[in-house]
């Protein structure tokens, strides 16, 4: 029971690590996801191919395999970065494929006529996407993007296996110190709940403020 109070700093560091991974990887995933979704509906064929390949490769690769590829593969090509940054890259790129598909489904909810109207007024593809399509798509993708980011927060646990400080990794030390494994994990679970429930709360607020009025 006192496993938490005895190990505040260990839990704290772990939680901070998970929060950092989640926040940075989420930002990367959101930016890449929106860019890739734009590519997938672009009038330029090569961009559409790039977006499609990006989604096909990343969405269909097991995340652990992707971590191996990034953390062990990239250094072979001379890319040497801190492990935490590698983990953010792997998590962010992986999740961006799911965000991309959520955003694309949102784009499909915007009536094509509005895009045609924008183009008939002389707006370019980028202007049409930025001013007409994405703002309306954004409203309908708030719930699925929220779910995807919660999944990202939980997926960040995999980074612990690659010696990145994060919440789940705290159990190894606690186990060696001889604490009850059950209570160690209960408090770890509470830590994850704090992160995921915060994400839920943020997305509830976003949905109230920006969600589609039906």
């Amino acid at each position: 029971m006192n496993v938490l109070t005895d190990n505040w700093s260990l839990y704290g560091k772990g939680l901070l690590g998970t929060v950092e991974l989640t926040v940075y990887a989420s930002l990367l995933a959101l930016v890449l996801g929106f860019v890739m979704a734009s590519f997938r509906v672009a009038p330029v064929g090569s961009l559409r191919v790039l977006g499609t390949v990006w989604v096909a490769v990343l969405r269909n690769t097991p995340l652990t395999l992707l971590f191996f590829a990034v953390l062990l593969g990239l250094p072979r090509f001379g890319v040497v970065l801190p492990f935490q940054l590698f983990a953010v890259l792997a998590l962010g790129c992986y999740t961006s494929a799911f965000i991309c598909e959520a955003v694309r489904s949102g784009i499909n909810t915007v009536p094509t006529g509005q895009g045609e109207a924008a183009r008939s007024l002389g707006m370019t593809f980028t202007q049409t996407l930025g001013a007409i399509v994405l703002p309306q798509a954004f409203r309908s993708v708030i719930p699925p993007v929220g779910s995807t980011l919660i999944a990202l927060a939980k997926n960040s646990a995999i980074a612990g296996s690659f010696s990145v400080t994060e919440l789940l990794g705290a159990y190894k030390t606690l186990n060696e110190l001889g604490y009850s494994i059950i209570w160690s994990f209960v408090w770890i679970a509470v830590g994850y709940l704090i992160v995921t429930l915060t994400i839920s709360a943020v997305f509830n607020v976003l949905e109230k403020r920006w969600g589609v009025a039906r």
Binding site: Q114, E116, G122
Partner: peptide, 25 residues
């Protein structure tokens, strides 16, 4: 062809659609 040049020319020709197509947001 599709691109900036076409966008410029489209700006000179207004279009009104059967389903109005106003920007809902």
């Amino acid at each position: 062809d599709e691109g900036r040049e076409l966008a410029r020319l489209r700006a000179e020709v207004g279009m009104v659609f059967q389903s109005f197509n106003l920007f809902a947001h």
